[in-house]
């Protein structure tokens, strides 16, 4: 295929010099198969070495290159230029975050909110530190939260969320999904602690299901679904209708728990 020239309209901002962000246009030579991230590299190598963005793995795993591409928050490494346009593409930093420089948003506010939802298994300390057995979890119990574990914390959902466009306190789709991921985990006992965070002013009820987070998520995590399931649990718990299951027990050792017939535990590799 012949080489195409595509105009990249890139948001530039240097807080030490510029009073506010402005758009700079670069003409990029595009080949078949080039991603938006490749286009940015081409600009840096051939046109403007001062352009700044953040990336790491360039294959949709690390979640560093979340950007507003043609008005949609998505990963630059996951987006083919020619799937979007043959002529013009706009590239901006993720909205709803402060801009550090050019295309680099400050994701710290998101990570602080993530830390605030207790994103870890909450069990009595003795049970967690006692290494004599594993927690028993069935495949069905795993499926109840597995989808929400695929989140890579890229912040695309935060950039798409309409509530976050004005509300500084709202936790946002990513932290609330993390919250639901642990709430739905059968090994966890922390519902009461997290319910405090989730029903507070910045919690789950600031979500009104505009559906944007689910639409833009580059990993199919579906934060919208997680938040609605979280609300359902909060409301049922308030009305005393929630199905109060005990967290899953610990296996007492090899052979305990539900094993398939004719199945034995493999021999231990570590001497007792």
């Amino acid at each position: 295929m012949a080489e195409l020239k595509v105009n990249f309209h890139v948001t530039r901002y240097n807080p030490e010099k510029d009073p506010k962000p402005y758009i700079q246009t670069y003409s990029v030579a595009v080949n078949d198969g080039m991603t938006v991230l490749d286009g940015l590299h081409w600009i840096k190598e051939n046109l403007d070495p001062t352009l700044v963005w953040r990336y790491s793995c360039r294959m949709g795993i690390c979640g560093s290159c979340g950007m507003l591409i043609n008005g949609t928050p998505t990963l630059a490494c996951n987006t083919q230029i020619l799937h979007l346009s043959q002529t013009d593409i706009t590239v901006g930093p993720l909205p709803n975050f402060e801009i550090i420089r050019d295309l680099v948003p400050d994701l710290l506010s998101m990570f602080e909110k993530h830390a605030a939802v207790h994103p870890n298994i909450i069990r009595p300390e003795a049970e967690l530190t006692d290494r004599t057995g594993e927690f028993y979890q069935s495949p069905e119990e795993l499926e109840a939260y597995l989808q929400f574990t695929y989140c890579i914390k890229c912040g695309c959902c935060m950039g798409a969320c309409p509530t976050l466009a004005t509300d500084v306190r709202y936790l946002g789709p990513m932290p609330l999904t993390a919250l639901q991921r642990y709430n739905a985990d059968s090994r966890d006992e922390g519902f009461k602690v997290r319910a405090q965070v989730a029903s507070a002013d910045g919690g789950a009820f600031r979500c009104h299901y505009a559906g944007e987070c689910s639409r833009v998520c580059p990993k199919g995590v579906d934060p919208g679904k997680a938040i609605q399931l979280l609300k359902r649990k909060l409301v049922l718990d308030y009305l005393h209708l929630a199905n109060r299951k005990k967290p899953c027990p610990k296996l007492e050792g090899p052979g305990h728990g539900k094993l398939l017939p004719n199945m034995t535990a493999p021999p231990r590799t570590i001497p007792e």
Partner: peptide, 25 residues
Amino acid sequence: RHNNRLGVWGWLGGGRWGIERYAYI
């Protein structure tokens, strides 16, 4: 730093949004 929050205009949509967004507004 530049605060890149979209403001009330962000409720209406700052990009290419779906119909649930418009149902919401």
